[in-house]
Design a protein around this nucleic acid. Structure first.
Length: 678
DNA sequence: CTAGGGTTAG
């Protein structure tokens, strides 16, 4: 009798300490006990689980089973939820096996815990099995599975479950509705979204802020801005989430200007608000502005998280600034920001776009898990340097690791083959896409193939492919076909393409410039004049070539023929000096790259003022020997600048990297990494 | 427990 009383007191103490998160004190009591029962063990397991010591909780459970104590349903719930916290599926299955072996009686709470564990550990199938086998489902169980379906992006399943529960006569509560509305947002299902809104209204559930926030989000994602604003205006307790839902919706809508205005006037903002705006800037190609926002965050003492860094890394990649890229990477390490799959992928791309394949592959090598997107990023690292062999090796490695390739992977692969001149392998991959991997080629893949064939000079084969495509070739495809005509100086096919394009997309800028370039390099000045006149009539403006170089942390930007730089005179002198030394080495400017009908001398002058040359000259002046020169250009580099860069790298003993709009060139000792195939 | 995240041809 006395012992029973002592046991009861001790168990109560352990339970009490667990409630107060003082599990250590509970442990002391537990250790001193002479006699323990299942409640003693369970209370302590619960205590550990409650203070995020899930590992200890689970090992205590095993210890208990070892000691021959029969667990009860409460013990099971504690142990299973500890496994859920650890996201450890194997452990969860082990606990489950013990449960079945020991014949613990199933109850609803336990089934809920199991369901929760399987979903948190990512085993949706096992979770579904539990769910289907359970005969007396309660509301919590329905809500649990629905909320996890939402979390895993399986919105369709949410509505299936909703149907089932309505048929069984279960009344949805606010948690049910929250998941339902979120599912409608994911699916863009306005009709169920609207009736959910009505249900919420009838049952007075909208007083719960979360519900109204979800409704705003839903309407925004369904493209119903007005309906969203109506709910927004009617809300009495607007929270940060409410405001964030609104600005995120506006950003998705493309109204970044309004989003920015509201962001500035919001009564309260948090990290999510900043991340939303940074993402908006990236979406609108306002990369400097994205970085500026991040700087502003720093000034206000707000630290970035994973999501911030994804946006910033992406902006940095587009800017091509390696110094910034390195700084970002250091920032992530210093602030202990965990590099998950998405951030990892972003960083791989950032380094690759900044012309640093070594760091890109370093990040890739350190990634904990790699999905198809991650592998694609790595393959793109190979693609931008024209390393087709490396790309194919990575692809094979990826298949070996049983990652299923998607359409993106093939774009990267075919691009790599194209830039590396791997025609046969490219063709083979293209045909194997559907046959071996079940990925049907889309217009982008045909685009890659036209580019691959065109670059290799197989213009007829490219035309044949374009004719046999299941869809109409678009402006981009015609554009790469034209680029191929230019490279291989085929005016006849260019003229044919010109006619087609004029019917197809009269307003595309780059293409018309290309057309006019081809005529110009072949000396067909009447045609040049015609195209240029057409461009002028349609109000088409040529995008000016622009190159930037980073010196001592500052980005200097030059446009073609730019004379506005403060060191313009020195740059001119430098270019003159380079020209002299190059001439001595036998360099002859390739004036076919100039598209105006002017005399040769003027052409030479214009050519010598291409933006990448200005940037290179500036780099030579302002950095010391041994420091590599890194230039980022917005358009494709011309062949003359390519020759120029090769010679400069030799005569000035400088490593030069030029990243143009789709790949980079690494010049060293008179040679280029592309081996002149590009 | 509602808001924010990676990659498509030239």
């Amino acid at each position: 009798m006395g012992l029973d009383k002592d046991l009861f007191v001790a168990n109560s103490l352990i339970h009490f300490y667990a409630e107060c998160s003082k599990v250590d004190l509970g442990r002391k009591v537990f250790d001193k006990m002479l006699v323990r029962n299942v409640v003693s063990w369970t209370s302590l397991i619960n205590g550990y689980s409650g203070v995020d010591m899930a590992k200890e909780a689970v090992s205590l459970f095993f210890e208990m089973v070892e000691a021959g104590v029969q667990p009860n349903p409460v013990t099971m719930v504690c142990a299973i939820s500890a496994c859920a916290k650890l996201r450890d599926l194997e452990l969860g299955k082990k606990v489950c096996a013990f449960m079945n072996e020991l014949g613990v009686k199933h109850n609803t709470l336990m089934m809920n815990a199991l369901l929760d564990m399987y979903m948190k550990c990512g085993d949706v199938c096992a979770a579904r099995e539990i769910f289907d086998e359970c005969t007396d489902k309660n509301l919590v169980m329905y809500n649990t599975i629905m909320s996890y379906y939402v979390h895993h992006g399986l919105a369709g399943e949410v509505l299936v479950v909703l149907d089932e529960m309505l048929q069984k006569g279960q009344r949805p509560d606010k948690v049910t509705m929250l998941s339902t509305i979120a599912a409608c947002a994911q699916l863009g299902d306005l009709s169920i979204g609207k009736s959910s809104h009505a249900y919420v209204f009838r049952n007075r559930l909208e007083s719960w802020d979360n519900i109204s926030n979800a409704i705003i989000d839903m309407y925004m994602k369904c493209g119903k801005r007005e309906a969203a604003c109506k709910v927004f205006d009617s809300m009495l307790n607007k929270t940060v989430v409410t405001w964030n839902s609104l600005i995120a919706g506006l950003v998705r809508d493309g109204d970044v200007e309004l989003a920015l205005k509201i962001f500035g006037e919001m009564p309260e903002s948090n990290l999510v608000s900043w991340n939303t705006m940074i993402g908006a800037m990236v979406q609108e190609s306002m990369f400097e502005e994205a970085i500026d926002l991040f700087r502003e965050m720093q000034n206000q003492g707000i630290k970035g998280d994973r999501v911030t860094m994804v946006g910033i890394a992406s902006a940095c990649g587009y800017l091509g600034s390696l110094d910034l890229a390195k700084w970002i990477y250091t920032y992530i390490e210093k602030n202990d920001i965990h590099i998950d799959m998405q951030l990892g992928t972003s960083l791989v791309d950032m380094f690759s776009r900044c012309g640093d394949p070594r760091n890109a592959m370093h990040v890739f090598g350190n990634m904990e898990k790699r999905d198809a997107s991650a592998w694609t990023a790595a393959i793109r690292v190979m693609a931008v340097e024209g390393n087709a062999k490396g790309a194919i090796e990575l692809f094979n490695e990826m298949l070996k690791q049983e990652v299923i390739p998607d359409d993106f992977v093939f774009v990267a692969l075919l691009t790599a083959c194209s830039h590396g001149g791997y025609v046969d392998q490219g063709r083979h991959l293209f045909w194997s896409m559907e046959k071996t991997h079940g990925v049907s080629p889309q217009i982008v893949h045909y685009g890659c193939m036209v580019d691959l064939l065109g670059r290799a000079g197989l213009l007829e084969e490219a035309i044949d492919l374009m004719k046999s495509m299941p869809m109409e070739p678009n402006d981009v495809i015609w554009g790469s076909f034209l680029a191929a005509c230019r490279k291989h100086k085929n005016v006849e096919l260019a003229r044919y393409a010109d006619e087609k394009i004029t019917q197809l997309v009269p307003e595309r800028v780059g293409i018309h410039v290309l057309v006019s370039n081809i005529y110009a390099s072949a000396g067909k000045w009447t045609d040049v004049a015609r195209v240029r006149l057409e461009m002028k009539e349609k109000g088409v403006q040529k995008v000016p070539g622009s190159s930037s170089i980073e010196v001592h942390g500052l980005i200097h930007e030059f446009t073609s023929g730019d004379e506005s730089h403060t060191e313009n005179t020195q740059i001119g002198l430098m270019l003159h000096e380079i020209d002299c030394r190059l001439c001595q080495a036998g360099y002859v400017p390739d004036t076919t790259n100039v598209l105006l009908n002017i005399d040769e001398q003027e052409k030479e002058y214009l050519l010598s003022r291409h933006s990448e040359k200005l940037a290179m000259a500036y780099g030579l002046i302002n950095t010391s020997k041994g420091i590599p020169i890194r230039v980022v250009k917005n358009l494709r580099m011309c062949s003359d600048c390519h020759t120029f860069a090769k010679l400069v790298s030799k005569l000035y003993s400088r490593e030069i990297t030029i990243r143009d709009n789709n790949r980079y060139h690494f010049f060293k000792e008179g040679l280029c990494s592309c081996r002149d195939y590009w």
